[in-house]
Design a binder for these strands. Structure first.
Lengths: 226, 226
DNA sequence: ACCTGAACACCGTTCAAGT
DNA sequence: ACCTGAACACCGTTCAAGT
């Protein structure tokens, strides 16, 4: 009955690439990458799986398009006009929040240098690094470091969230479990990990994320004074 | 006939978790994450898919174990005893090379903070950051930044390699294609991306990777002088 | 205790056939 | 041009049955 009520909904709009991407985002948000199925998608769109292939090349194309839609929105929502440093922080935080809201953005999906999501980020950060006065020949490496860092945290957060969900914990309970496991490690082999077990439990991901950005910005400043 | 010669090989050793992990690594190296199948694995091991489940919980467990075996080997192979900065660089490069040799290490696989691969890295880098004289309360954020950066590049490299393989190009041809696509972007919307298109083609990943590490180490040095 | 292999409930993708 | 839905060739995982 539940199933019938959904699949018997009349489709009042024609199918389109945009509608498919919108539906994919909704499914990804509620069920993660594993939940996005051509059958689930065609069910939600009241059509057959084959119809989707008219608008979308394959699943990889679909995932990239969904990522790009989110990244585009996040970038558009953060047009700031402050110092280059502040702008970089703002763009980084916009990505952090976007990935927090849509954890499936992590994983190597965005990182595809092919075209869309990655290039948007590259451009935004690149322009700010240029405005920072970094010499042309150093820009590539610096932008790369910032980009890798931002996407690295993205992947990490996504992995945390996914693991927590798989085990049926909420986020803080999951971090508590990890923290407890770290505290139980062999003191001789893992002194450092044990010493930060408490911070693993209590830390604020967002604050640590900005601290890392500032560390890299600090490295740039140091480079320039040389 | 080809298939028969493989599946009719007598199994001279009993099945074991280690033998399964070894076979998985071989399959992952030659066929990527998509190539690792319980059927392909049981074929190579001359057994049935069900037998594998006696030694391994599921595919996720198997992938994590394969990652851990590689990370463990990489860490064991780089016991260096120089300055903390040099040690951090050595550990980072060991990971870079391990991921270059086994691209499937990228993706959120290693990043699982649960237990094994991630903790090994955390500990190694944490000890060196401690030796650097970083105050206790800053260590967590700094180690996090280094770790995220290293794993971020990992994921990136893995994504590049995977994309290149999917399109049947070799690495340099793939980078050339991306570079050409970047050069063709709208000059008003993507000035920075266009300006670095040439570097995308010619750059040396390994050199850029170390440059990023040095940038973070520079940020730490700046922090300490404060 | 360990292994076998058929069976189950799924996938992504294709394609003849419809409108 | 766009959609339908059955069919194909796969998956991961389970489990009765064997040794």
């Amino acid at each position: 009955m539940v199933k019938k009520s959904r699949s018997s909904q009349r489709r009042d709009e024609a199918l389109s690439r945009d509608r498919i991407i919108e539906a994919s985002i909704a499914i990804l948000d509620s069920g993660g990458e594993a939940g996005l199925t051509f059958r689930a998608l065609s069910d939600r769109l009241a059509t057959g799986p084959g119809a989707i292939y008219w608008h979308v090349a394959n699943k990889s194309d679909l995932l990239t398009a969904a990522c790009d839609a989110i990244v585009d929105r996040a970038m558009a929502a953060c047009v700031v006009d402050a110092t280059p440093e502040a702008n970089i922080r703002a763009v980084a935080l916009a990505m952090f929040d976007a990935i927090d809201a849509h954890p499936w953005l992590g994983s190597p999906r965005i990182s595809a240098p092919g075209q869309l999501p990655m290039v948007r980020l590259l451009e935004r950060i690149g322009q700010q690094v240029g405005a920072l006065g970094v010499p042309r020949e150093d820009q590539w490496a610096i932008v790369g470091a910032l980009l890798h860092y931002i996407l690295g945290v993205a992947g990490q957060n996504a992995a945390n969230g996914k693991l927590a969900r798989e085990q049926g914990f909420d986020r803080s309970k999951f971090l508590g479990e990890v923290s407890a496991a770290w505290s139980a490690l062999d003191p001789d082999a893992y002194p450092f990990t044990r010493s930060v077990a408490g911070q693993m439990r209590d830390h604020d991901d967002r604050v640590d994320f900005v601290a890392g950005i500032d560390l890299i910005l600090g490295g740039i400043a140091r480079l320039q004074r040389r």
